[in-house]
Amino acid sequence: MSSLWTIVRKEWKLYFVTPAAYVVLALFAVIAGFFFYSMLAMYVMQSLGGGMFGQGSLDVNSQVLQPLFFDIGITLLFLLPMITMRTYSEELRSGTIELLKTSPVRRMEVVLGKFLATFGLLILLLIIAAGYVLIVVHYGKPDLGALWAAFLGLLLMGGSFLALGLLISSFTRNQIVAGVVTFALFLLLWVANWVTAYGSGTISGIFSYLSITSHFQNFTQGLIDVKDLIYYLSLIVGGLFLTARRMELAE
């Protein structure tokens, strides 16, 4: 158990002695800020216009926050590969993996330690996002329950990204390859439900189930469905388990 924290601390130390983590955090703040601003601007324009046509007030949740959560999701999709791509690849390239694998530490402790370290960064990112959301909470009257659900969704989706990124990184000593493949996989998972727009039946049902977005949708609407929880948790657990297996057999 203490080895787990040794790994987490080491990972965090490495994040913050290099500019990598700062760059990711700053990029996220800027991009999410831009999305937030544009959503808000659009909403304000529409509500002014709506007032003129006598439609009554618009819904902050569906007009501002739901799209904002999707945009934060997309930002994570771009940024998380930058966090996971080095986790194992760098250890494989530099040979430090030999230290980890010959120390009296269980494989799963290393994998879990690395995962928790990246998860910690994800939480930092979501705290930044929460800052923007709080502005809406202050001025508008959003449904707070839906907000919590949406953040839970972001955590789970981000966690799935991280677990998959970790797994991919364990397959190559080349960070760039790991990053590109991870990003491509995330993108595929993100758009998998697009095919459902043009078809129906089992195939599109499968794609829709695989799609990371269709499961995220419910969370942004304040719905926590066991089906979605199972989807994300199985991605996380499966990804971590396979990474541990991979480390056992590697080389």
Partner: peptide
Amino acid sequence: GYLPELPPVYPEM
């Protein structure tokens, strides 16, 4: 105690 062919060090530390 094991010293691999390449010293297993983290260059940033």
